[in-house]
Amino acid sequence: MMLFFEGRCTGCRTCEYICSGIKNRAFNPSRSAIKIEREGIVDRALFCNQCGDCIEVCPTEALYREDDIVRLNRESCSGCRLCVDACTIEGIFIDKIDGKAVKCDLCGECVKFCVTHALEV
């Protein structure tokens, strides 16, 4: 499980760059599985907490659990957005380039670059 400590986040969004870069071999924060949203002076991270509520609503069984991680088989994903609607913490997104779901698979790459330890595994 990945944890976010709000008071430590400087809003640098390096996690978004790293996530989109490592997953797509291209930088594009809009495709990241973690998003930093600034509201007033507070930076908040949105990402999957691996609760699995989305698994039940997925009509193509693209979402499944493997140990503690909820995984996504992108080939099976139809981009129906039911998982996005079912997620209560805004932790799963739709990729604008290919129209399929994007979610955190706890690869931990963003955590390595988070110098203030706002993200921890």
């Binding site: 008071g7 400087t10 640098c12 969004r13 390096t14 760059y17 007033g40 110098v115 203030t116």
Partner: peptide, 25 residues
């Protein structure tokens, strides 16, 4: 000082979020 803030992709954190006595950031 409330907290350090930064530009995108920066760890230097020269941005200092401060609050004035009348509560402005």
């Amino acid at each position: 000082l409330i907290q350090n803030k930064t530009c995108s992709v920066c760890s230097v954190q020269c941005g200092k979020l401060v609050r004035s006595k009348d509560g402005k950031y």
